[in-house]
Design a protein around this nucleic acid. Structure first.
Length: 197
DNA sequence: AACGAAGTCAACCGCTAATTT
DNA sequence: GAAATTAGCGGTTGACTTCGT
């Protein structure tokens, strides 16, 4: 279907770490022309990079309002809870944490939280199924997960939701930041009794 | 001080979904 | 409707740093 690599010629494509100059070129170009058609962006900005690489760099580092490092306890807690709910859906999780990127959340999870979970996780109950991962499947049923996915999809397709729970609508807080984290924690506190026990 | 192991994280890869032609 | 192109996602890799001996 899709081509393996979007670049026709890989001859002189830069790879690896971005230089300050490349960052500046990319940011400058996007500021003027916007962030779309990444292949074009790469070419027009005079970057010997593939479009994919430019996109990633912009989304993860150059984009405005990006927060880097220093993940707060509150954010960490939220990540844990959202991961429990959503599994490895990093972009979804990141979408609930203003200023955080999926890559950062994923890295943070892999290097910090997965270990933490493994350390603190209680021994599996004999009655429970023998899943070994920290995926949510052991916490929530597949039906519940599916329901989330279906309602997400149907909302995009139809533009309105039925009575089912919609995770995007429910967690959408594109504008209000500090309020959100507190509110989310409140929600999870209430919700914990239902879902996470 | 030197060296290997372990940890971290930016970037890449392969794939699918969505959009455009 | 089909094909081509673009966007986006999650998994993985590898360079670099930190830690332990």
């Amino acid at each position: 279907m899709a081509p393996k690599n979007e670049e026709p010629t890989k001859k002189f494509v830069n790879r690896g770490a971005w230089t300050a100059e490349e960052d500046q070129r990319l940011a400058q170009y996007i500021e003027i022309h916007g962030a779309k058609k990444w292949k074009l962006v790469a070419a027009k900005a005079g970057l010997n990079r593939c479009g994919k690489s430019c996109r990633l760099r912009w989304l993860n580092y150059l984009r405005p309002n990006i927060k880097r490092g220093n993940i707060s306890d509150q954010e960490e807690d939220l990540i844990l809870r959202l991961h429990k709910l959503l599994g490895n859906r990093w972009s979804l999780i990141a979408g609930r944490l203003p200023g955080r990127t999926d890559n950062e959340i994923k890295n943070y999870w892999n290097s910090h939280l997965s270990k933490k979970i493994n350390q603190t996780k209680p021994k599996p109950q004999p009655s429970e199924s023998s899943t070994t991962t920290d995926e949510p499947k052991s916490e929530k049923s597949w039906e519940e997960i599916d329901q989330l996915e279906v309602s997400e999809k149907s909302n995009k397709e139809v533009g309105e939701s039925d009575t089912s729970f919609n995770v995007d609508d429910f967690f959408d807080f594109s504008s209000e930041e500090s309020f959100t984290l507190e509110w989310m924690n409140k929600f999870f506190e209430l919700d914990e009794g239902l879902y996470f026990q």
